[in-house]
Simulated scan of single mutants.
Amino acid sequence: MAIKQRKFGRADLTVTDMGFGAAPIGNFLKPISEETAAAMIERAWAAGIRYFDTAPLYGHGLSELRLGQALRWKNRKDYVVSSKVGRLLQPAPRESIDFAPWVDAAPFAIEFDYSYDGAMRSLENTLQRMAIERIDIAFIHDCDVFTHGAKQQAIYFKEAMKGCYRALLKLREEGVVKAIGVGVNEWQVCHEALKQGDFDCFLLAGRYTLLEQESLDAFLPLCEKRNAAVVIGGGLNSGILATGAVPGAKYNYAPAPQPIMEKVAQIEVVCARHKVPLPAAALQFLLAHPAIAVHVPGTRTVAQMEQNIAWIGHPVPSEFWQELKQARLLREDAPTP
């Protein structure tokens, strides 16, 4: 079995090294049927995946509803769930809600709320939507520049540390959750949070990949020192590390710029020489760093789920990684399998 169990940093949790990222089943960009969502979760379970990540944002609650439905009658001791705080959902008429980038989402308007009470209410609402008795990991969601812009981010980050963080500390002390963290799009925000707070873990979207290793400078070493676990989302940089440097390839949700296209094309040449699929290299690279406990690739179909499972089990020779480093396509200090 390609999927293995791993200790989740210093927390009293064990996760599988590949998780199920439940953003797509919130109907990200285009709808996924109830049947397909349920089938993907069942296939993940059959493959041995036991870590599932969701959030109120995903489909305005739809992801949590669907994931809860699929997990409800499984033995609660057998799996780990993470969700997030920082937004509250309010029932509203569908026609009044801006759902973008979600399609056919649940009829709830979203408002940011990084307060203490907001975090408590958010987690309670998540439990209600999922109809399971507990969440194992709670992340403070999107208190980053990508979401808010630089000026507003500084304000929201302070609010989150004063509000959400204190709430999650209390919940961890009471044993309501086993681990607390921050889930954002920039390693710098994670690094600042780890310097300021007693966090167990981080969910970092797209900022440690085969194309990006800046987080090796300060953030990942501090995680190692503190034994803080890292969950990697967006390990394929939202597309290009799955498709390769093809016309229209996406990099971080936008058309890939020319320098990225050129770098990926160079990596593909090395892949071809060693008979390694590019996505197999991209996904296996993530797990080589000792601070990274799990990665959560998002999938839209059962076929994509099958493909991810095959990629993480595909043989990759050590000479492949050596050649990438010699060609300066990968940082010399980046851990490799």
Rank of each mutant, 00 (worst) to 15 (best):
P257Q: 03
H295R: 11
N252K: 10
H295S: 14
A281L: 04
I260T: 01
A291W: 07
F285G: 02
A272I: 11
V246W: 03
H274A: 09
L286K: 04
Q258P: 11
A293F: 06
L287V: 09
A280P: 10
L283A: 14
A280F: 06
V269R: 14
A281H: 02
E262Q: 12
A293H: 09
P290E: 12
P259L: 11
Q266W: 03
H274W: 13
Q258M: 15
E262P: 03
N252P: 10
L278F: 04
K250P: 12
P279M: 10
A245L: 07
V269N: 12
L278Y: 02
L287R: 12
G244R: 00
L283Q: 15
P257K: 09
A293R: 02
G244F: 01
I267W: 02
A245G: 05
R273H: 12
H274E: 13
A288Y: 12
H289S: 01
A249P: 01
E268V: 02
P290Q: 10
A249Y: 00
V296G: 07
M261P: 03
V264A: 02
F285R: 07
H274R: 08
Y251D: 05
P290H: 05
H289K: 04
M261C: 06
L278H: 03
A249W: 01
A254P: 14
P279I: 04
A288P: 15
A265T: 01
T299H: 11
G298M: 06
L287N: 15
A249Q: 04
A272L: 15
A291M: 07
A265L: 02
P259A: 11
L286P: 01
G298H: 01
F285D: 09
I260F: 03
P247N: 03
N252H: 15
